[in-house]
């Protein structure tokens, strides 16, 4: 059992939790993730480690409601428990193992989209802790969905916030900001780290490729075990098939086949619709409504 010490709603549909998991907090590094499972009947849900406290033995996660399981998770309160909480999984971000002096000479750009701000945050914080100032772009659909702004401002060198609908700071996509920084403000970057919805990462990569900036992305395909046992998380990187849970989740964004990955992520859409229906309507849902194929 893994106790939830703090549960907080950050924005519309976005939640933050601190979970007691000393084993994970002890050795985890930026870039890695955990798998949580609410109870006996729950799914295994992968979530990036957003922050950790080695002394207190806690892990911070931030998640967005997208389907039945995340909806169920959002109902949990401080004091409740996750039956299972596994990690750290996946590989650490590359820079953790790089030469610090070389890293300090680089100009690094972080790009976060939506709930992607959560996985970007520990990396930016790591940079700050190691004396490196980085530029950070955070994009969100609208003002109410923007998360971790204060935390990010404290950790970043420069922070650029943008909203799709213009409800806060500026209007536009993260890609517009990248273009603006490089083409109008004369910024040069040696590398870019982009994390967010796959579609965002795809367009960031198209742009950084054009601008010649090497780019790392963090892939979030559907997973089951997270240990390399099932292959559900496989994706094509260059001409190789990789398992995101053990080979990643971070990859060279210019080599990732995003179109394939996005199709694979949609695989359970109809099934997930079913699960939501069941959750909403409880025992009154017996299928046959024509929307979900009923109970097969």
């Amino acid at each position: 059992m893994y106790k939830i010490l703090k549960a907080e709603k950050l924005a519309d549909k976005i939640y933050l939790m601190d979970v007691e998991a000393p084993r994970i907090a002890r050795y985890c590094e930026p870039g890695q993730f955990i798998i949580s499972k609410i109870d006996d009947k729950g799914e295994r849900i992968p979530l990036t480690i957003c922050d950790y406290d080695r002394e207190k033995g806690t892990i911070t996660i931030v998640f967005q409601i997208v389907g039945a399981s995340t909806e169920r998770m959002a109902e949990l309160q401080a004091g409740d428990v996750f039956e299972d909480f596994t990690g750290p999984l996946g590989c650490e971000s590359e820079f953790v193992h790089e030469d610090l002096e070389e890293l300090k000479n680089q100009k690094i750009l972080f790009v976060a989209g939506g709930v992607g701000a959560a996985p970007v945050y520990p990396q930016v914080k790591w940079m700050r802790e190691h004396g490196i100032d980085v530029d950070v772009i955070v994009g969100s659909k609208t003002k109410d969905m923007l998360i971790l702004e204060e935390e990010m401002r404290a950790a970043a060198g420069n922070l650029y916030v943008t909203t799709d609908d213009g409800s806060y700071v500026r209007k536009g996509m993260v890609t517009d900001v990248i273009k603006d920084l490089v083409q109008n403000q004369g910024k040069k970057y040696d590398r870019c780290v982009a994390i967010g919805p796959m579609i965002m990462m795809k367009f960031v990569c198209l742009m950084t490729k054009e601008l010649g900036i090497p780019t790392i992305v963090s892939m979030n395909p559907i997973m089951v075990d997270g240990t390399g046992m099932c292959g559900a998380c496989r994706l094509t990187v260059g001409d190789e098939v990789k398992f995101a849970c053990v080979d990643g989740p971070e990859f060279d964004g210019h080599l990732v086949n995003f179109d394939e990955a996005m199709k694979r992520q949609q695989m359970y859409r109809t099934e997930e619709g079913r699960a939501i229906l069941k959750l909403r309507e409880g025992k009154t849902h017996h299928g046959g409504c024509g929307h979900c194929g009923g109970e097969e």
């Binding site: 009947k41 729950g42 799914e43 295994r44 039945a68 399981s69 169920r72 089951v224 075990d225 046992m229 099932c230 292959g231 559900a232 695989m267 359970y268 099934e271 997930e272 079913r274 699960a275 069941k278 109970e295």
Partner: peptide, 25 residues
């Protein structure tokens, strides 16, 4: 699917039972 994924969804995650959350195609 790999056989491992198909079997894991069904055996470990009990996708064949309606009262479990994990889906299977």
């Amino acid at each position: 699917f790999s056989a491992n994924e198909y079997l894991t969804r069904n055996n470990l995650m009990k996708a064949f039972r309606d009262d479990y959350d994990t889906p299977i195609v």
